[in-house]
């Protein structure tokens, strides 16, 4: 379970997150929507300590993410993350991209790491690309590679930061399908997304962020059917 309490984040004078309170339960799929600059990415970065916070707290399975003694490298193994830019390691084959972290972070033997990598690559439909280098893959394939790379650490949570925003339109579907597959398998997911169809169909809850505040959160029927907040209504009117 992820527990966010009164989370405040500043970049210098810029107050980016203004007191976020949010619980995400095991097995839940939460979509986060909102206009650009509203603090969605920053929120995700605060969950795995890629960003420091100025006030409040984040707990992941009871671990205080920003406490001094917390082993962040261990914590991050719990939280797989997929970014807008897929960031494949260009010098490694597809298989090595995925087996690197299990080997050097988890200390798995080469054989075990490769077996895990193969398993996750088949899982995302890249079983036939093991020996390829990332630059021979399409954007959609590289993003699925990024998903496999995160999954190979056997995370309990997956954080997606606009995983499809940088893709050519015809490649969006294959990545969303992979995300859907994970959701069906029971993965706990927080998906920052502009894909309203995905948010509506796959999420248990949808949160709308507006200028660093969580304006509204609720089941997709509420957010897309009968939003309570004026800002949420306006935002949705604009994206449609």
């Amino acid at each position: 379970m992820i527990q966010i309490r009164d989370l405040h984040k500043h970049f210098g004078d810029l107050h980016v997150l203004k007191g976020i309170n949010l619980d995400v339960n095991k097995g839940e799929v939460l979509s986060v929507i909102g206009s650009s600059g509203s603090g969605k990415s920053t929120l995700l970065y605060c969950l795995n300590n890629l960003e420091q916070i100025q006030q409040g707290s984040v707990h992941v399975d009871g671990i205080n993410v920003h406490a001094k003694g917390t082993d962040v490298n261990k914590l991050r193994q719990k939280l797989g993350m997929v970014f807008q830019q897929w960031n494949s390691f260009p010098h490694l084959t597809v298989l090595e991209n995925v087996s690197l972290a299990p080997r050097i972070v988890k200390g798995k033997s080469k054989g075990e790491a490769i077996a895990m990598a193969e398993k996750q690559l088949k899982h995302v439909g890249l079983g036939d690309k093991l020996k390829h280098y990332p630059n021979s893959l399409s954007g959609g394939q590289q993003q699925r590679l990024a998903i496999a790379r995160a999954l190979a650490m056997e995370p309990e949570y997956m954080l997606f930061d606009e995983a499809t925003s940088a893709l050519d339109p015809e490649k969006v579907g294959e990545v969303l399908d992979t995300m859907r597959l994970l959701a069906e398998e029971g993965m706990t997911m927080i998906c920052v997304t502009h894909e309203m169809g995905f948010a509506k169909e796959v999420s248990d809850r949808v949160a709308h962020f507006h200028q660093g505040i969580m304006e509204e959160i609720g089941p997709p029927e509420q957010i897309f059917g009968a939003p309570q907040s004026e800002h949420t209504r306006k935002f949705l009117a604009n994206v449609r």
Partner: peptide, 18 residues
Amino acid sequence: VPASMRRASRSLGISYWQ
């Protein structure tokens, strides 16, 4: 090396030195 690449690698639990 783009900052986003290093961020992605750190997100896997890879340490600063690794």
